[in-house]
Design a binder for these strands. Structure first.
Length: 569
DNA sequence: ATCGCAAACGATCTTAAAGGGAACTTTAA
């Protein structure tokens, strides 16, 4: 099925390529505008007849025909021509963060680079600095951008690869009902970035497993790397590398435990003088829980098996009970059509209610985020009036009025105090001026945290996984400040962000900082991301008690109220 | 390429930071 996001992607690529090839700027802008209007469109373009397409803002005769072509055959002539005259490596170059089509065109046409690797050589030879429009500093930035891009090759965000591995496992299980199958390794630990699909199949007849795998259309083998106990290949659609380990049924639990834990987890010294890895040598047939128990440990959830703090707690029988989806009572930090969301406030609220949540916290963009249609003071008032009415209509369901306030360059929030005071809660986030050194960035955050209006610190580092590193932050100092100022830290659940990083969750909890699992949803479907934020929290040992949005509607209402009273006093 | 105003065409405009190169272009939120 050709969906809107596929269509938008193709048109966006066309715009980039047109810019790369120096076509008319206004044409390029028209395409970009089309992409933006598709993003917030609430109908599937593939279901819209040609005549109706023309009525959509930003779509004229020419684009409408192209959309029809994409729906019919996945592409259109203009795009095919552009792709034809652009080397694949140059298209990869277009993905470099901080470098747009104009710069890439120079690097390609003037510098002669046709791939990331060639470009890197060119940089190291100092030749990029001699191209007009470039100099030493840009060359350095470019090297960093290339190295980052290269380091992400073959890697996937967990959420993006989840459907692939689940479908592989399902297929194997269907063909071999008596086999046991599971994902393992980093995949089973739900690490945010995945470099290969690590799977385990327990079945006494290995040949049978090999035959089943070889008959799967979705997979292709890399025979050179396969061995007697491991099938190595890749998933054709995503190009993700796949490793399938084979083991006897009897050994499945042991091998699952052995392959799930990180090296540090398996090699951690236990107080009985051994390690999990050593202990496993003499075991077979026991469940994972029994194996942990036999070493005097509590059962450790797969997400936590990183070898950081979980072993010590498991020995003391002090492992926390991790937060679960059913503990989450409301959804905070969401956008609507008031700013850059796809669905109306009403749709967002009603859908949230249908999903069984008790409340919705709406937090559209603030005025400085012009590109995202941030709310002016008078639009804030309008929205708050609509919220007031919705709360009467949808009761006992509750909509809380919030804002995702930009943290400005000096750390201040984006409205005067009296406007800020009118919200139930405020998510403070950085969206612009991301090139800061660690001191500047940390101080900017600290100022925002000390602002009594700040309820939640949004996506702490501004990173986009596999795309952008984000600004450097002294996590410890920022977390300490949140603890002192009773500010909640967001776990932004968007699979692109998962920010704050799971590696800091435990430290925040130790300091007594409450965390909030927020999807940053820009549409009703965006609520699904809650799950990925949950996994991030669980990796760091997050409990129901320390999760802001596991509070009931009355508890969270009291919490917001008490924070506001603090401002007055 | 699209839109709107008006008759075949003209206008299209977010903004600020950064860098390179001395006034401007590019990029990204």
């Amino acid at each position: 099925m050709i969906n809107n996001s596929y269509i938008a992607k193709k048109i966006k690529l066309t715009a980039k390529l047109m810019e790369l090839h120096g076509e008319n700027d206004f044409k390029v802008k028209a395409y970009q505008k089309t992409v933006e209007s598709i993003k917030i469109l609430d109908v599937e373009l593939s279901q819209v007849p040609l005549a109706e397409l023309l009525k959509i803002e930003g779509i004229g005769k020419s684009t409408a025909e192209k959309i029809v072509s994409i729906v019919e055959r996945g592409s259109f002539d203009k795009l095919d021509e552009l792709l034809e005259k652009t080397p694949e490596g140059v298209i990869e170059m277009l993905g470099l963060s901080g470098f747009g089509p104009k710069k890439i065109a120079l690097l390609w046409k003037e510098g002669g680079a046709e791939s990331l690797d060639e470009l890197l050589v060119l940089c190291r030879q100092g030749k990029v600095a001699t191209i007009k429009g470039f100099a030493e500093k840009t060359q350095e930035t470019l090297i960093k951008a290339i190295e980052f891009k290269i380091s992400t090759r073959g890697m996937f965000r967990y959420a993006n690869i989840e459907p692939a591995f689940k479908s592989i496992l399902e297929q194997v299980q269907m063909s071999l009902p008596n086999a046991r199958v599971s994902e393992t390794g980093a995949l089973r630990r739900r690490v945010d970035i995945i470099s290969y699909l690590d799977l385990l199949v327990g079945n006494d007849d290995f040949d049978e497993v090999r035959r089943v795998i070889s008959e799967m259309d979705s997979l292709a083998e890399t025979e050179m790397q396969s061995g007697p106990f491991t099938w190595v290949g890749y998933h054709k659609e995503t190009k993700a590398k796949v490793k399938i380990k084979l083991c006897k049924l009897q050994e499945f639990d042991k091998i699952l435990l052995k392959t799930t834990g990180s090296i540090r987890h398996l090699n951690a010294n236990l107080s009985n003088g051994t390690t999990l890895k050593q202990a496993l040598l003499s075991m077979n047939g026991n469940s994972e829980a029994e194996i942990y128990e036999s070493q005097g440990l509590q059962y450790i959830e797969p997400e936590m098996r990183e070898g950081t703090f979980e072993i010590q707690l498991a020995e003391k029988k002090e492992l926390p009970k991790l937060v679960e989806m059913s503990d989450l009572k409301g959804i905070l930090h969401n956008h609507s059509t008031y700013s850059d969301g796809k669905h109306t406030l009403r749709q967002m609220a009603e859908h949230c209610k249908v999903l069984g949540y008790e409340y919705l916290g709406i937090s559209d963009h603030s005025q400085t985020a012009v590109y995202a249609n941030g709310l002016y003071e008078y639009t804030v008032k309008e929205q708050q009036e609509e919220i007031r009415k919705l709360n009467i209509e949808l009761a006992p369901f509750r909509v809380f009025s919030g804002i995702e306030s930009d943290i400005l360059a000096d750390g201040s929030l984006d409205y005067p105090d009296e406007v800020l005071a009118g919200f139930d809660f405020i998510v403070a986030s950085v969206h612009s001026g991301l090139n800061m050194d660690i001191n500047k960035a940390t101080n900017r955050l600290l100022t925002a945290i000390r602002n009594p209006h700040t309820t939640i610190l949004g996506h702490m580092t501004g990173r986009l996984l596999l795309e952008r590193e984000g600004y450097p932050v002294d996590h410890q100092e920022v977390i300490n400040a949140c603890a002192e100022n009773n500010v909640v830290i967001e776990i932004n659940a968007s699979p692109y962000r998962l920010d704050m990083d799971w590696r800091w969750v435990n430290y925040a909890l130790e300091k007594g900082v409450v965390l909030s699992i927020n999807p940053d949803a820009h549409s009703m479907e965006g609520y699904k991301d809650m799950y990925y934020g949950l996994l991030t929290g669980r990796k760091g040992g997050l409990t129901k008690e320390m999760t802001l949005n596991s509070k009931s509607v009355s508890e969270i209402s009291d919490f917001f109220q008490s924070r506001k009273e603090k401002i007055l006093s």
